[in-house]
Amino acid sequence: MTFNIINKKSFIEIPKAIIFDTDNTLYPYKPSHKVALKAAINKASKILSISESEFKKAYLISREEVKYRLGEVASSHSRLLYFQRAIEILGLQSQILLSLDLEQTYWRTFLQNSELFPNVIELLKILKKQNIKTAIVTDLTAQIQFRKIIYFGLEDYFDYIVTSEESGKDKPFQNSFELVLKKLDIEANKCWMIGDSFNSDMVGSNKLGIVSIHKKERSHFFKKEVSYVDAEFSEFKSLQDFFISNIF
């Protein structure tokens, strides 16, 4: 699919900066998460001598509980807290070492199975060449998001990073978007926001006046309020071609 411009007014000049979401935007999140969670559950079930389904059930309850208790903040995504609480729900008290072990097993397997979408690096190289600033705005804790960026070898391509741990609130709250604009020192309408989540990335950024570009999944056709989306694409190659052709 080509780079589909919905709101032509937003694309009359080259952006000064592009802000990227991370999970499911720069790399496919779901397949890695699925394998990683399976590995962690498998390990937990072996160590604790319980069935995988039993641990998974406890994990899901724990996840909901943690999310409900903490609200939309970075630590509400902490796998360490999910595993810690899941073990507690199973009546085995807080097993600190095991919780850490399961968290590391999860992230290790996650990284092992993660691969950037094609042409991400090529696009970032073009942006560098065209002197367009780049930033990441992402939910979750800084530690693991930084690790992911380094694992993918992207640390040199981004000028700034803002995590919800730093801003205090997850997207679509505007804390992260406001903070990144402050760091970039660029007006909102001169920035693009690329993300996969309609609610978190598109609505949140668009309300601040940032040009919002939706990274669509190939098989993802959901009805949305077009007014929040200025453009859409499914493959970074199309965005890369867009910048190479220099249509501005």
């Binding site: 590391q104 992230w107 990284l111 530690q143 690790r147 992911k148 694992y151």
Partner: peptide
């Protein structure tokens, strides 16, 4: 260094 930080934390 990058691998140790990203994979092992």
């Amino acid at each position: 260094s990058k691998a140790l930080i990203s994979i092992c934390g």
